[in-house]
């Protein structure tokens, strides 16, 4: 049994910050696909994550994951460009709870708030809330097997942790 990967407290804190998030997968036809995620929750034991997507916006990604694709989650903090990529060989759908919806709304608002401080228009909060509504959320749970530092630069791709 490989040693399970436990996210560091810093990585956990980072994952709870204002982030731009995207989930990638590979379809059965071999095509990579990507969808903006709208919320991430780190489990108490820091071994698994739940990432939230819109079912309609993420159809291709969800189909690929349902068909057994590996998953990748890339999260980036707009103000610093600090970026992590977390990968796992599988992800599992879990039921969506009111807490998930609240977490998604919170994550989207935090992302919009961060963008506003960077000079994007103040109406962005409303715009993003309409682009990323919480009415058709899907929750995906996965256990990261490898974490990369993906901050743009020559060190991007450095492995930070693995099972």
């Amino acid at each position: 049994m490989p040693t399970p990967l436990i996210l560091s407290p810093e990585q956990t804190a980072f994952l709870q910050g204002p982030l731009s998030m995207n989930v990638g997968a590979v379809g059965r036809d071999g095509w990579p696909c990507v969808c903006r995620a709208q919320g991430v929750i780190v489990a108490r034991d820091r071994r698994s994550l739940t990432v939230l997507l819109s079912a309609s916006r993420g159809r291709a990604v969800l189909e690929a994951l349902d068909a057994g694709s590996a998953i990748t989650l890339v999260v980036s903090r707009p103000a610093t460009h600090a970026t992590l990529q977390l990968k796992a060989t599988r992800a599992m759908r879990v039921g969506v709870s009111p807490a998930h919806r609240a977490a998604s709304a919170r994550c989207v608002a935090a992302f919009a708030g961060e963008l506003e401080t960077l000079g994007y228009a103040t109406e962005l909060k409303t715009t993003l809330a309409s682009v990323l509504p919480t009415d058709d959320l899907v929750a995906l749970r996965f256990v990261p097997e490898i974490v990369f530092d993906q901050t743009p630069g020559p060190d991007a791709g450095r492995v930070l942790a693995r099972t």
């Binding site: 590996a70 990748t72 990968k87 993906q150």
Partner: peptide, 9 residues
């Protein structure tokens, strides 16, 4: 078949 997502400048 492992996906990768990166920012494109």
């Amino acid at each position: 078949g492992t996906p990768n997502v990166a920012y494109a400048s």
